[in-house]
Write a protein that binds this DNA or RNA. Structure first.
Lengths: 241, 241
DNA sequence: CGCCTTAGAATTGCATACAATAGCATTTGG
DNA sequence: CCAAATGCTATTGTATGCAATTCTAAGGCG
């Protein structure tokens, strides 16, 4: 009921620019826009039915989040993080999620536990299918955890590093290795519920490391911007020209 | 040689928008623009000698960093973080800086140690004076540490939380309590140099906690935008109309 | 034949103009 | 006299236009 990129305090100004931001974000994270692909302001705006102004604003935000690289006077390119950057991201992610579990261990309400278990069940159900659904759910688990801390900043940072990790896995990882994630998520819930902080941190650490260690290659074919972006535009209520 | 707000990969587009961003950032952090003050786009633009477009872009970035609050169709206001938000920020800062010292303990080069000691000496020297210099240096110490990790993302996050902390201290903290910081910084350097990770993490934790615990009230008088912003504009090479 | 120069096209950087929305004051009806 | 409705004003949201920069490529020169 609260998909992808909307935190609770989302005080961002416009509505349309948010839609552009989300459309591009999803397009990048789901791999539709391959790393290093150039995104001209004109084309994107035309595809999404908005002016360059809004596209630029969205670009700025995506660049800050590390999903785009903005080269001065050159334009915007889908980020293509190096292995070293990837390592950095996972390190920070580990530090942040360690704080998340430290906050949550022994403090989860029965309702929150139920929510988490429900989420894992969804993960398990969608595991067989090939779609990006399974990947999305696995990542969302960590977002949900972060939200439960009630710490908005921690929540935002976790979301950001999760995004970057998704991009990294889209580049370096193999798609169908999310099997282990489910059991690891279950272990984590158990440790959190029992209030064993050290165990929870350990499980989280191992879990993230196992995710990080999926560093294999994978490529995708290229298509034209038009057909790539159309579905994302439509799903955000934007009208391509 | 690499002051305030510029990381190594700073791939941000324009140069002028960066100047606007930095001018406003400094103005906020040094307390010239008080929390909750409204910043109309055209007034700011006029004062800084740029159009609303650039001001807006800078606003967006500052809002993401938590220094501004953007209310839809209402405008931008200098952030006025609540005590709860402040707590959240310090918690995240603690998690991040813990990672910093974990990275650095036992791995500092003699040159880096010298740099840190030099910095602390500067802190010590500027301690007597009343200016914001002392505060700035105390904060910068943590930035320098983060930079030494070589982890760009960690570096950026530490910088962000440091900014927010500065704002928080400007609101809740008393100005002249940076005395203890110097000795604590010295302790930290020693622990890092000796490679005692646990000790370093402990010292950092206590240090941050002592900083966080300075939660007293302090207010400032109000002036007009013109005289408030002029010096910041000039120092960034902008030409007020 | 290859490299440097240079004109053209395309794209970004920035400013301005227009449209939409929120806040405020006045007015109007009860 | 007060409350609700309405027009006005100020400010934000968005689009467009112009200037500046970069890329491309054709042409000239060594």
């Amino acid at each position: 009921m609260n998909h992808a990129g909307s935190t609770s305090h989302e005080t961002k100004s416009g509505q349309r620019v948010l839609a552009v931001y989300r459309a591009l974000r999803r397009a990048i994270l789901e791999g539709a826009l391959r790393p290093s692909l150039k995104l001209p302001e004109d084309s994107i705006g035309e595809q999404l039915g908005v002016s360059r102004t809004l596209v630029r604003e969205a670009f700025g935000r995506l660049a800050i989040e590390g999903l785009l690289e903005l080269k001065p006077n050159r334009g915007a390119f889908v980020a293509n993080p190096s292995l070293e950057e990837a390592r950095d991201v996972f390190e920070v992610r580990n530090a942040l999620e360690r704080q998340v579990v430290a906050n949550l261990a022994g403090r989860l309400t029965p309702q929150q536990i139920a929510t988490l278990e429900h989420h894992v069940k969804l993960e398990n159900d969608s595991q067989g299918r090939d779609g990006p659904e399974s990947i999305r759910l696995a990542g969302e688990f960590h977002i949900v955890l972060a939200q439960m801390t009630g710490n908005d900043l921690l929540n935002r940072y976790v979301q950001e590093v999760s995004s970057r990790c998704s991009l990294i896995l889209a580049i370096y990882g193999r798609p169908h290795s999310s099997e282990c994630a489910v059991s690891e998520h279950r272990q984590l819930i158990e440790a959190l519920t029992s209030g064993d902080t050290v165990k929870a941190e350990t499980v989280m650490h191992h879990h993230l490391e196992s995710v990080a260690n999926r560093a294999l290659l994978e490529r995708r074919p290229k298509q034209d911007l038009s057909s790539l972006l159309a579905p994302f535009a439509r799903s955000e209520g934007l009208t391509p020209s």
